[in-house]
Nucleic acid binder design. Structure first.
Length: 888
DNA sequence: ACTTCAGCCA
DNA sequence: ACGTGGCTGAAGTA
């Protein structure tokens, strides 16, 4: 028993990480980007447990550094013959070191020595300082360190249980004192270190000899006296035993350049720790960590102590007088927008970091809102998720036309595939500002606002924005994305806000009729399906369908899904070819009708009071730079089937405008054109310049026939392949899609690449570049980071490669469309025809009858000239009463 | 509340 | 395992 209340915990990082690696299956532990985490998870889990149980005052984790050790110098075969560590292991060691450091724990390494030697040295230092010492190691050599003051924590099977090896425990298990453990190990040998001992001698014999002769030198001196076969063996292997004895001694006098008190368990860096846990997607572990490290609790970690912010509640007039001297303002509010109606009560305005004024918009009169609007209009405004807020304010009578900065957009450009862009997280990660929920009775506010918490929250957000935006803007600059940010994404915000607020008119009566019609069709198909099998079943349940198809009807099994066998349309069609069972046809018909019905029902629910549907465009969702649309999604309205197209008939021109029409304008084959441009393939570029039918032209090259001899079958094969290439299609995938052999598909692809060699070079190069740079780039410099290209998991790596192929193409198309929208919107400002929708390569404008020619000219010119490629950008335009009729 | 399956779009 | 990027709704599981 030590009288000290100090305790030192020493950990052999490498041996424990290695154990964890083998205890936890690597396939079950990896992040979405493909980083393997099993060793990290197991190690940190063990570490958290032991820290919680032992509560040491001092801690160190030792790692081996480099391969060259004094042991290896003396005995080149030391540790030879070990199975190669899998490639997934080593990258995890660096992350473990980072986490340990962030936990306030000293990482110790020393060139030329093993972790064990560092542990022995520190154990001696601890003992000399009067501390209790615990050494956690998966290496049995550490048993020689056990003493009155030093206990070895040795993991049993797995990673959760530890054996406490005191001197008594060592003696009980091996029959020798810790001091003699070295001798025992030297006699027995250590397979893992490639140190053979005396053949035929195990723990028992070695212990007996050591007991009889005191210690190993005693045993060796008396080797002649030991009889029997084993005695002979001992005498034959004295050199090896002596070598083992030299090598397995742990050095306790390594110069580590540190004192005992350097090992005090410090505060670490909770923000860094939290960010590492986020990055590694450790959620449950984060909570366990929080128990011993409250400061790093989960993702919402406090990055810094809450800063002093000054928030003052004022009225609009007071606010206006405060604003006089400031050109850049940060704004935040409790904005919401649903079904065409926006609302905001609290508006927070900050003119410098750490400071904000808060006004109650509900109390402001129309005149002061107008004045406020014009004051804000003269300044550069920084917001987070600006679009929602300016839409909401517009419905309150406060109009803001321009956005000077948007921290959500900036963060999106920097990491376009992040899960979310919440201000609290960005502020914490990028600027070290803590925006966790304020206490509701902070009392700073003087209170004509009925809820302090809301006002304080938005005040603090506004007060943080200027600083957060500055950090993000600098990062964008560093990544050469300032242009995409300032010239594309920011100006697009008010354009999209306007489109959303306007919405598109729908024919509600027509919608209801469609619902009736599709419902009747679905019911009829369902009845026929039931009749075909003699009973009812939930046709919407894949699980119940599987019972019917594979158990009752005994059909051949389809492709596996996670939970059974697929019943998707493709598989059902194949089953029908094989079985000709009428149930399948009726099921497919039922699926079609219910799908359409669902779509129409969904649309009807979203019609606002003004008889229009207001979708919301997400500007920070698609990792490639596209927009997405939700609530409802107007980018997936059916078009391929005749009955599907009928849904497009209910989207109509503004009924308030007599003889108005919808105009659609779309890019023709924009992705293939971008592919031609980026690859510089002369043949492909020429085809576009000549205005050939692309797929017939490519078909004539691939099949080596005249362009007029390309039949429809050839054309459709080539079409599938051309599009597939943009997505990283494999020969197997192509063969599946075209229902041809893999060999034929492979031959087609080879022919293609023979004729369009630059395309192949480009596709290869793009992946190589992404691998080297860590990201892909569009024509405007928009980036997408793909760390999974270096994943050790094949499937993730392949997915990342396909994403790398596609991102520059899909993303460049998105860039071009966004630029075109800005140009079109700017020219439409002088007219009365609003832009309503965007569907990736198509825009829809509501055109007044007297403006048809002007709008046609505008969209053709501006879309066609949005970006100069080596091939022309073709634009098709059509007009009609409905979206359906405007198709061309 | 969350996941899986299926199906719609470019 | 085998083509990118999205959103929605129903069923099934917790």
């Amino acid at each position: 028993m030590s009288h000290s209340n100090e305790s030192l915990l020493l950990i052999d990082g490498h041996s424990l990480a290695y154990r964890a690696f083998h205890a936890l299956p690597v396939e079950n532990f990896s992040t979405s980007t493909g980083q393997s985490t099993n060793a990290i998870y197991g190690f940190i889990s063990m570490l958290i447990n032991v820290l919680r149980d032992e509560e040491p005052s001092h801690v160190a984790v030792a790692f081996d550094l480099g391969r060259q050790t004094f042991r290896l110098e003396e005995y080149p075969e030391y540790k030879a013959g070990r199975a190669k560590t899998p490639p997934e292991f080593h990258p995890q060691i660096d992350l473990i070191k980072d986490i340990v450091t962030a936990m306030g724990i000293r990482v110790v390494t020393k060139e030329g020595f093993e972790a064990d030697d560092a542990l022995a040295t520190m154990a001696r230092m601890g003992t000399e300082a009067g501390a209790d010492v615990e050494v956690m190691s998966g290496d049995k050599d550490s048993f020689q360190l056990a003493s009155e003051t030093v206990t070895i924590l040795y993991p049993k099977r797995g990673v959760s249980d530890l054996n406490r090896m005191t001197p008594n425990a060592v003696e009980e298990k091996y029959g020798v004192t810790p001091a003699n453990y070295r001798g025992l190990a030297a006699l027995v040998g250590e397979k893992a270190d490639n140190l053979p001992g005396v053949p035929g001698v195990g723990d028992k014999t070695a212990a007996k000899w050591l007991a009889a002769h005191g210690d190993l030198p005693g045993v060796l001196d008396n080797a002649e006296k030991i009889g029997g076969k084993v005695g002979e063996k001992l005498r034959d292997h004295i050199t090896e035993v002596e070598r083992n004895y030299r090598l397995n001694r742990l050095l306790d006098d390594v110069d580590l350049d540190l004192k005992f008190d350097d090992l005090v368990w410090g505060e670490g860096d909770p923000a860094e720790l939290s960010s590492l846990f986020d990055q590694l997607e450790f959620q449950a572990l984060g909570k366990r960590l929080a128990a011993i490290f409250p400061e790093a609790a989960g993702a919402e970690a406090e990055a810094a102590p809450p800063r002093e912010t000054t928030i003052a509640a004022v009225d609009v007039d007071a606010l206006l007088s405060h604003l006089a001297d400031h050109d850049v303002l940060a704004l935040d509010s409790d904005a919401s927008f649903e079904l065409g109606h926006g609302q905001a009560r609290v508006l927070a305005v900050s003119a410098e970091p750490g400071q904000a004024w808060v006004v109650d918009l509900a109390e402001a009169g129309e005149r002061s809102l107008t004045k406020l609007g014009s004051a804000l209009g003269k300044r550069s405004l920084i917001l987070h998720s600006a679009k929602l807020q300016i839409k909401a304010w517009a419905s309150m009578g406060l109009s803001v036309a321009d956005v000077g900065g948007d921290t959500a957009l900036a963060a999106y450009l920097l990491v376009p595939d992040a899960r979310s862009y919440e201000l609290g997280q960005i502020a914490s990660e990028r600027a070290g500002i803590d925006l966790s929920e304020p206490e509701s009775d902070s009392g700073q506010l003087a209170l004509d606002l009925d809820s302090d918490a809301t006002a304080t929250t938005h005040g603090q957000r506004a007060a943080a924005l200027l600083e957060v935006h500055e950090v993000l803007a600098a990062a964008l600059d560093e990544a050469n994305m300032t242009q995409v940010y300032r010239d594309i994404e920011l100006p697009l915000v008010p354009v999209l806000a306007r489109m959303e607020s306007t919405g598109i008119a729908v024919d509600e009566g027509g919608l209801s009729n469609l619902i009736d019609e599709f419902t009747k069709q679905a019911e009829a198909s369902a009845q026929e399906a039931y009749d075909a099998i003699g009973h009812e079943v939930n046709l919407g349940s894949p699980k119940q369908l599987q019972t019917v198809l594979f158990d009752e009807l005994d059909m051949p099994k389809t492709k596996r899904t996670k939970t059974g066998y697929t019943t998707d349309a493709e598989a059902l069609a194949e089953l029908f070819v094989k079985t000709e069972h009428p149930f399948l046809q009726h099921l497919l018909a039922y699926r079609d009708s219910t799908k359409l019905k669902q779509t129409v029902v969904g649309l009807l629910k979203t019609v606002a009071d003004d008889g229009r549907i207001h979708t919301t465009y997400q500007q920070t969702v698609a990792a490639t730079g596209r927009l997405s649309s939700l609530d409802p999604n107007l980018q997936n309205i059916p078009v391929r089937t005749e009955s599907g197209r009928r849904i497009r008939e209910i989207f109509v021109a503004d009924p308030e405008v007599a003889d108005g029409c919808l105009l659609t304008a779309d890019y023709s084959q924009i992705e293939m054109r971008i592919m031609a441009h980026l690859s510089g393939d002369a043949a492909l570029i020429q085809a576009f310049k000549d205005g050939e039918d692309l797929h017939s032209y490519v078909g004539s090259k691939v099949f080596n026939v005249g362009i007029d001899e390309v039949d429809s079958e050839m054309r459709s094969k080539v079409k599938a392949m051309s599009y597939g290439l943009v997505y990283g299609l494999s020969a197997y995938g192509l063969s599946r899609q075209l229902a041809i052999g893999v060999d034929e598909a492979k031959g087609l692809m080879e022919q293609y690449f023979e004729r369009f060699g630059a395309v192949k070079d480009y596709l290869d190069e793009i992946v190589d570049q992404a691998r080297a740079n860590g990201f892909t780039e569009t024509i405007m410099g928009r980036r997408r980071y793909l760390p999974a290209l270096h994943s050790d998991r094949r499937q993730l790596r392949d997915m990342a490669e396909r994403a790398a192929l596609n991102a520059p193409i899909q993303g460049s198309a998105a860039d071009i469309m966004k630029i075109a929208m800005l140009k079109v919107a700017s020219r439409l400002e002088d007219l009365q025809s609003p832009m309503l929708l965007q569907v990736h390569d198509e825009i829809i404008v509501d055109v007044r009858p007297d403006e048809i020619d002007a709008v046609k000219a505008i969209v053709t010119e501006e879309m066609g000239s949005a970006f100069e490629l080596d091939v022309p950008l073709d634009v098709n335009v059509g007009t009609g009463r409905s979206w359906h009729d405007a198709a061309h």
